[in-house]
Amino acid sequence: MRRTRVRIALACFGALASAIPCMAFAATDAAGAVPWWIWPIGLFAVSFAIGVVAVLAGVGGGVLFVPIVGGLFPFHLDFVRGAGLLLALSGALSSGPSLLRNGLASLRLAMPLALVGSTSSIVGALVGLALPTAVVQTALGVTVLAIAVLVWNTKATDIPGVRHSDPLGEALRLSGVFHDPAAGRDVDWKVHRTPAGLVAFAVIGFVGGLFGLGAGWANVPALNLLMGIPLKVSIGTSGLAISIINTSAVWIYINKGAIIPLLVVPAVVGAMVGARIGSRLLHVTHASVIRRIVIGILAAAGIRSLLQGTGIWN
């Protein structure tokens, strides 16, 4: 059984690894000789693998989807970003109910942060669709490389243990209790540096809207390391905040006409099926190894995006 699961995990990595050079080759074909139906099937396969890897590495699918698909498939970056936002939104919506019911996501914590984030994500989406593609692609490459460095360097703290809340955090009653089954006890939490947290979510929302990325890569460090919220509550609340923030940005892409269903649906369904498989493989895989693989993928996708944006490798 264990061997079977490991084989499944390896197969997923293999699918992603083998799909990438195939797609890179096919992209150079300028979508001429390749039958149209190859693309949605390839997109489903890559999104499935992204769904598995994203869960195992603890990052959102959007941050992998946009640079990989934008760099290796023939779709224009405008449509890839729209699909990326919907992919991240779908994942966040589907995980939200259980996180809320288990107390791993705090609605009161998410609401003010999402309010700031959703406003800035609208601005980000409008800016992203107005800028020249080469500029967005180059900036995406730089951002994805920065995310790889951030993921590499981030050392999360399980329970930061904030002693005194700041005045704004107190006014917003940003505190709570969650039951940690691993530790077998209830954990009280409260926040500090709330104004800095709000500024961080404004920046994260803007970047998310601009590039169509999910924002778990930045939300979790902002909640955990900056605001002092326990890691599990940070991860759960991040997902809930993404579902709110991405909703506002998604509508900009829908209303601008930057949604092609043939791209969106295979990507969303593939990532969701992959995430389900990934969650079952969590206990048989080594998180540190997968984390390194994801950092490698991010670095490669970031460099590819950078080269594409600067016109060195189209």
Binding site: V34, H76, F79, K256, I260
Partner: peptide, 10 residues
């Protein structure tokens, strides 16, 4: 016909 269009900017 979609491949003719999906590579175009919005």
């Amino acid at each position: 016909d979609l491949p003719k269009y999906w590579g175009l900017p919005i």
